[in-house]
Write a protein that binds this DNA or RNA. Structure first.
Lengths: 179, 179
DNA sequence: ACTCACATGTAAAGAGTTACATGATTTT
DNA sequence: AAAATCATGTAACTCTTTACATGTGAGT
């Protein structure tokens, strides 16, 4: 399941442009699958070249043509085949945790900064989830609700753990002097 | 913070070979930072070329020379500079959640399989964490304990959420027929 | 007899991120 | 007057993954 496939899935909800899909990635998929324009536009071009989506160009004044994509029956088949995979991955890549592993080489200040910034990022995710639930909750399929629920459960668990155990960690950080 | 830097950090704990570091990645770092031989060996070669680690070659019979790496003062400086970054990332890339988003396009059987496999993987992580705590708990720095604690909190939160909400999701999956 | 652990490395392929390139309209 | 939104795309770069390549010794 790569960016192409996720784009295909998003298009089952209705036609959209690359720009629209980017918004969708940011608002609902961002916490577990991110993609920038540099991934999305080539993905759509590739899907179109393989007949998995159709593209309708809508001329505009000043701006580039708006290209609206819609999924084809062949695209739907490819998507369903992808959804049939029994073991989709769930991977974490955390420079945050890698940093924490070496907390004993950091000063208490450095550690506090890293921990506080993580909490701040978690809280911005909380706001994102709240926003999603207040605006899009009704129009989206149940699977989306589930992923938002998991996202929230995950960040709350992390926040709680940091708040309950962070101070203990700071007691073991290095002194300010870097000998 | 890339594979190179994590290797550098691991070497602050004592000298090790690429093979040893791979073990370390699997047993303690795997849940938030994975790396294979194809990343580790080139990383060590690059660190050695830049004088951040020293390499001692130990001839062996039959097997390739065992190359034992140790961190240099310059390497330590580079590591400390890396640990000074205030906003280390924490990224999730989940084909699992991406699949769940489109649960309404899957059969109840497909969905159950995906959910069960995820639970099974979570349980194998639980065992890994137990093993770590029973064997390496004492020798590792406090930061490691913290990361294992977060890892456990995260997978438990996910497991709980799936167990409490998974059946509700299955009520909304597609019928077996793919029209 | 077979498989697992030990032990290192290269090369090609695959995927994503970042920076660049352009420019009108709408909101603050 | 500045900033954000709309709107698309390419090219270079970075990084990881996978497959290949080789071979011994110990345990089951």
């Amino acid at each position: 399941m790569d960016v192409k496939t996720v784009c295909l899935g998003m298009l089952t909800d209705g036609e959209a442009s690359g720009y629209d899909l980017k918004k969708h990635f940011e608002s609902s998929f961002g916490h577990f699958f991110s993609a920038g324009y540099g991934s999305i536009y080539p993905a759509l071009a590739s899907l179109a070249a393989n007949g998995l989506v159709n593209c309708e160009c809508i001329p505009q004044n000043g701006k580039p043509d708006r290209k609206v994509y819609s999924i084809t029956p062949a695209g739907r088949d490819v998507l369903l085949a992808e959804l049939d995979k029994p073991n989709p991955s769930h991977k974490v890549r955390s420079e945050f945790l890698a940093t924490i592993c070496f907390a004993h080489l950091m000063t208490a200040d450095q550690l506090a900064t890293v921990l506080n910034n993580r909490i701040a990022e978690i809280e911005s995710y909380e706001k994102l989830f709240d926003k999603f639930e207040h605006t899009r909750m009704h129009e989206t399929p149940h699977g989306m609700h589930f992923t938002v629920g998991i996202g929230r459960a995950l960040i709350l668990a992390m926040k709680k753990y940091i708040q309950e155990n962070g101070h203990e960690l700071q007691g073991h950080s290095a002194a300010a002097a870097n000998f």
